[in-house]
């Protein structure tokens, strides 16, 4: 596992306020190439808000979000539209699954792939040879991704008919189709049984080994502790601890946030 020193994602002083509620408060975070980083914290700590700010769904009130795909220039993502950010190399999944329900598994992945290719309205109508070739490449590539996540035998099923675990993997496949240098996973193991979780563990490692950095929100502590190179702990929109799994699990602030303070302390 080689870790490069350049940060793919660098977040500096990120703040997000909804009216009077400070959902994120001066948050700093870095993800390096080849890393799996976890973001944990009690419910309502602001983890998903963080994802929404980084992927362009919300525009943060203050701070910088900088993305540097390997070998490319740094871009400041604040205020960019989600589709532009996706093209820059960031993809995500959702805590509550958001697949295109009425499309087939293959179509879901192909959609993700489209942002890497160019085609105009006239090309779509008249379908010249290069458009068709491109389309074929998209199909082939999508099959390869589905193979990787273990959905090769259900490519033509409607995504709404998949099992819960399969839907989660399809969300990851769709995200991978956009060729992200950084993949954000929002509670990928939620609702999975232990066996599915174990497969997920393998899949995430494989994704990392293939050159995508991973930032995940997860409540399954066993998975987080096994998988992550580094962990950030949030509470009330602030970062309260960071470090390796060992360091974090020994940190008094973390224990306090999760278990509360005892009265006689």
């Amino acid at each position: 596992m080689q870790q490069s020193n350049t940060a793919i994602l660098e977040v500096k002083g990120l703040s997000m306020a909804f009216g009077g509620i400070q959902a994120l408060n001066q948050l700093d975070l870095k993800v390096h190439g080849g890393e799996i980083v976890a973001l944990i914290g009690p419910n309502g700590a602001g983890k998903t808000t963080f994802f929404n700010c980084v992927t362009g769904i919300y525009t943060p009130t203050a701070g910088d979000v900088l993305l540097t795909p390997p070998g490319q220039k740094t871009t400041r993502l604040n205020g960019l539209k989600p589709n532009v950010i996706a093209k820059r190399g960031m993809a995500r999944t959702f805590q509550n699954i958001r697949l295109f329900q009425n499309m087939t598994v293959l179509e879901n992945v192909m959609i993700g792939r489209h942002c890497r290719t160019s085609s105009f309205i006239l090309g779509a109508i008249f379908r010249p040879p290069h458009t068709r070739r491109e389309e074929q490449e998209i199909v082939d590539h999508s099959y390869a991704i589905l193979e990787k996540v273990g959905l090769a035998d259900v490519v033509n099923d409607f995504s709404k008919n998949l099992s819960y675990g399969q839907q989660r993997r399809l969300e990851i496949a769709r995200a991978l189709a956009t060729e992200p240098s950084l993949l954000l996973l929002d509670e990928p193991a939620a609702g999975m049984n232990p066996q599915e979780t174990q497969e997920l563990d393998k899949l995430i490692r494989r994704i990392r080994d293939e050159g995508h950095a991973v930032l995940l929100i997860e409540h399954d502590m066993k998975l987080v502790m096994n998988l992550s190179d580094r962990i950030y702990v949030m509470d009330y929109g602030r970062r309260i601890a960071t470090g390796t799994p060992q360091e974090v699990s020994a940190d008094p602030a973390v224990i306090k946030a999760y278990l509360g303070e005892s009265d006689d302390a």
Binding site: T55, I57, N83, H114, C115, R116, R174
Partner: peptide
């Protein structure tokens, strides 16, 4: 057409996959 169907089903998600 796929982009249209995706947008009709979930605009935010469509944006996130680069549409």
């Amino acid at each position: 057409g796929k982009a249209m169907r995706a947008t009709a089903q979930d605009k935010t998600m469509a944006r996130l996959v680069g549409i």
